[in-house]
Amino acid sequence: MAGSTPASAIADATDVAPVGRVGALGRAPRRRLLRRILQTPAGAAGVSLTLLVIVVGLLADLLAPTDPLVPAGPPLAPPSPAHLMGTDALGRDLLSGVVYGARTSLVVVFATGALVLLIGVTVGTVSGYRGGRVDDALMRVTEFFQVLPRFFLAIMAIALFGPGLDLLVLVLGLTSWATLARVVRAEVLSLSQREFVEAARASGASDTRIVVLEILPNALPAAVVYLGLLLAQVLLLEASLGFLGLGDPNLVSWGYLAGQAQRFLRVAWWLSFFPGVAIAFAVLGLNLLGDALTDVLGGRR
């Protein structure tokens, strides 16, 4: 790059369109959304990885070669045609464990996601639409939930109430909605000053009607975009708890598998490697999807 000056490398970021009208790309219709995501390599990878986890999780019964909790071969067998990911100390098939682990992750992510969406959207909408004191109070609460250390709270809850999927989802859901609520609030705030909302208000529509019909449909995309990134973090958190042996004792999870691998690290690398790859892929998929959605919907990262 002999011809280019370093200074213009810095100015590079400006990427100013020389003519105002050239860069005017409007917001694409929703129908084409998926196509535009798939057009970027990162977006395509995000969609594929996320879909892969969903499909594997849904079809776990069909895809898993054996029952993940029942011995199916020699103990600590390295990956082979018979056991593609090897076996653990009890001779259980690791591939089956990873496949069923996808289902556990799926349940945790979807259930937590639903809870987060419910609380986050409600708080964010009320806060943004009502404004004033209600807004102040709700934002104080939201800030509080942002500083609450989720991981340690979850551990304490598990110690007091005993481990279980329902408790895990409840704790993760109750403590993860704060940033989403802020995103929704910001969106609702700007939407409620827009013309179509003013018009609805002028025509005498009730607040509920305005929120449900005019504001929510437009605020939700921002929430969904953010949800992808948020659930990636939830997935990592769940994996960490599983790794420490604090997950649901009746379910196979990726974190649990990696935790079991710790003792056999010297002799059986595959026990750690494959569950880790699965988690990394799933988290990467959600992150890429979230980034791609942000780019396509024209939001900020």
Binding site: A232, A239, G255, L265, R266, A280, V283, L284, L288
Partner: peptide, 22 residues
Amino acid sequence: ALVLYAAPVFWLGQLALLTLAL
């Protein structure tokens, strides 16, 4: 950064142990 951000920390630790320490 994208990969490291997605990788669970215990897995990175185990991989580091396997490759760099053991």
